[in-house]
Nucleic acid binder design. Structure first.
Length: 325
DNA sequence: AAAGCGTGGCC
DNA sequence: TGGCCAAGCTT
């Protein structure tokens, strides 16, 4: 949970998660959809799948690995997580280098190579190994992470409060703000998306995304990009048709939701759609092109399923304003 | 090697 | 507001 996620935010999810899955076997035997639901809103959903896969491996063996290599071989466990578990949990002499440690060391030792690229990484790795105090690696790296989060912050570092300010090279050089060296940033793309809440016989059509890629295995409303010059309501009808084969018309606008991503900033234009031909009996049957599974759900049903955060915001707005439901 | 993968907080 | 960032991993 802590991978690319601020600790305070992960903590809330962690408490709920371990209350529901207190050991490896309970997680190994869990319904994957329940695991995903407990991960809803946290992002990077492959972590949830990897964690359950790791739990199955550990539960199957009956023992937790006791070496760095054994830990690192588990799915979803990379260099940082393996080092952190080895050092903090098992007391082994291994480095745990996260973004905090990278930032602290890049300042204390004035690393002038981009910190996210190979050369900068290698410098940090060497430094971390050289500084590692045998027998106390866990305390040491946890302290470095804490120092980075509380004092040696990305912006407005509290150098006046820093216990190691005297040995900080960047501070002596007056270039703390220039460390770590960042790779050149990519601009955020603004995209407009139409989202279709297709209602038929009082039920809402939802579909499950493919396992790979973004939001793998999560449920969603059909939708997609609004083309240049296209009206959002037309895009909602078109996307629904392309993804399901349904013929629909716009019944009402449901509002606009803005949602941020790392590389995109999305504006969701949401519409309530109804069958184009209201005289057709029963629920229409979809021909799925963008999803692997679908279902007709009540508003209450949606609460038990995992949706991307933007779509969850839409569901919340539907429940808050029951004009149409 | 570099891009894909989420989300919300912060300034 | 918009860009940056977080207890990174996988392909």
């Amino acid at each position: 949970m802590l991978q690319q996620t601020q600790a305070a935010r992960a903590a809330v999810y962690f408490q709920r998660f371990v209350a529901r899955f207190p050991d490896f076997s309970s997680l190994a035997d869990a319904d994957p959809d329940q695991v995903l639901k407990l991960w809803e809103g946290l992002g990077y959903y492959s972590r949830a799948r990897n964690l359950q896969a790791a739990a199955k491996i550990i539960a199957g063996r009956g023992v937790f690995p006791d070496t760095l290599e054994g830990i690192a071989a588990l799915p979803g466990v990379g260099p940082y997580t393996a080092g952190a578990v080895a050092a903090l949990a098992l007391g082994l002499d291994h480095a745990a280098v996260d973004a905090n440690v990278e930032r602290v060391l890049s300042r204390s030792h004035d690393i002038d190579a981009p910190i996210k690229e190979r050369q900068g990484r290698e410098r940090v790795r060497e430094l971390a190994a050289a500084l590692l105090p045998p027998g106390r690696a866990g305390d040491f790296f946890q302290a470095l992470m804490e120092l980075g989060e509380v004092v040696c912050r990305p912006k407005n570092p509290a150098c006046g409060l820093c216990p190691v300010a005297d040995l900080c090279q960047a501070r002596h050089l007056g270039i703390v703000a220039e460390r770590p060296v960042r790779a050149k940033g990519k601009s955020i793309e603004l995209i407009t998306v139409a989202t279709a809440v297709f209602r038929c016989q009082g039920l809402i059509f939802i579909q499950r995304r493919r396992p790979g890629g973004a939001w793998g295995n999560l449920w969603e409303f059909p939708g997609g990009r609004v083309e240049a010059g296209e009206a959002p309501e037309d895009a909602a009808v078109r996307e629904l048709s392309e993804e399901t084969g349904f013929s629909a018309r716009v019944e009402a606008p449901l509002g606009v939701i803005r949602h941020g991503y790392t590389t995109y900033r999305v504006t969701l234009h949401c519409y309530l759609l109804a069958p184009a031909d209201p005289t057709l009996p029963g629920l229409p049957f979809p021909v799925l092109t963008a999803a692997v599974e679908s279902r007709w759900a009540s508003l209450a049903d949606l609460d038990g399923l995992a949706f991307p955060a933007g779509h969850r915001k839409l569901i919340d707005s539907l429940r808050a304003d029951l004009r149409f439901f």
